[in-house]
Design a binder for these strands. Structure first.
Lengths: 209, 209
DNA sequence: CCAAAAGTGTTGTGCTTACACCCATGT
DNA sequence: ACATGGGTGTAAGCACAACACTTTTGG
């Protein structure tokens, strides 16, 4: 058949040292988003999960979600973009991919091949707005974390600074966002440790400034 | 090449007689969403616009936006779904398509072929939530409309009833949502006529009950 | 002793809700 | 006269922003 070439491309985001970063494969001329071409018998979500495993060496992403589809009118090619979240601190180096700070890639001028600049920008937009009304911020963190850790995720992704006390109050008040483990980071008086709760949506939302 | 068949499928929504309705082509065995298969040299958005013109006979949709992409693992086929809004009262009968009330199609059991039930449900979800934070409600209406007309759009899509006075106050208070034409529907004392303003986002949102 | 981070209290402010009420029209 | 739809007024409730203040840890 004279059909289209369909690829699944991943925007793998994480937070490191207070910055939002993307995972890009190494060793190519022009940096491009990681991905794979879609084969028969595989769902789109399945292909995305498989691609994630290929770039990171990790079993599963903290979050995996379809973003949008981009078509190349000339090349008879279609790219289905996914947003994937890499747990902070996870060892992603198995496959040689590297983390790049997003702010520098979103600067003026093309930094990635083809549509990838736009895809990255769309992914970051989606990520920023999803922090407002979902609990994906907590899925990025390890099993146990402090509210400060969670706040730093928000601050890094949004690129703003938030009031620690009001932030903590809000997060605690949302039913099922975080639940206390009862333990603390160090001795008594140290910040309390939480784990992610069952809720996935936040209502009302945690609005950005 | 042994590639994929890519189609662009449309969920064309509108409001009629206080109900949310979808436009479906006539004359087929199993009702299915209208669409077209993607050819070379056409962008996805372009193909969607073209498909819209084919089903409705109208030049352009009040709103056209990509929804998501659905893959069929076995058939080597990909469907890129779009949400399109048909202006209320527009004459769409040129191509013989018919409007069906959404509530009856969203009932239990499969009513449409393949993934189309799910696509329709996703489209309606998107539509409902977009009413909250964008001004697409106004794009559905004719050039001039009353706040009551706009309210009826919200009530029909959300399937609830809203307080007329609070609704009007909110809509007026959002900068650039509607602007007064100075004229009225009938003689003095009759409802004031508005046209859509330049704003496309609503902040803060108009939350549903 | 001091800086940094976490938790508690309080007050104001904006937005929304739920009312009650008025007005004009058209039947 | 009265039902209908549109517009105005107001008081209560909620959530959030912006403070100041205390406590504890770790250098």
């Amino acid at each position: 058949v004279n059909g289209f070439a369909v690829t699944v491309d991943l925007v793998v985001l994480t937070v490191r040292d207070g910055t939002l970063e993307v995972l890009l494969p190494q060793g190519q001329e022009n940096p491009a988003l990681p991905g794979m071409s879609l084969g028969t018998g595989l769902t789109l979500d399945g292909a995305a999960a498989h691609a994630f495993e290929s770039v990171t060496g990790l079993g599963a992403a903290a979050h995996l979600e379809q973003l949008a589809t981009y078509g190349d009118p000339d090349r008879q090619a279609i790219s289905v973009a996914y947003l994937a979240l890499l747990p902070v601190g996870a060892d992603h180096t198995a496959r040689g991919a590297e983390l790049y700070p997003v702010p520098s890639l979103l600067g003026p001028g093309p930094q990635l091949t083809l549509d990838d600049d736009r895809i990255l920008a769309d992914a970051v937009d989606r990520m920023r707005s999803k922090l407002e009304y979902t609990t994906i911020g907590a899925t990025l963190l390890p099993e146990e974390f402090t509210l400060g850790d969670l706040r730093r995720v928000y601050e890094s992704v949004w690129g703003v600074s938030l009031h620690h006390s009001n932030f903590a109050r809000k997060v605690r008040s949302v039913d099922g966002f975080v639940e206390p483990t009862g333990r603390r980071a160090a001795t008594s008086g140290a910040p309390e440790l939480f784990r992610k709760g069952p809720a996935s949506l936040m209502m009302p939302a945690l609005m950005r400034p």
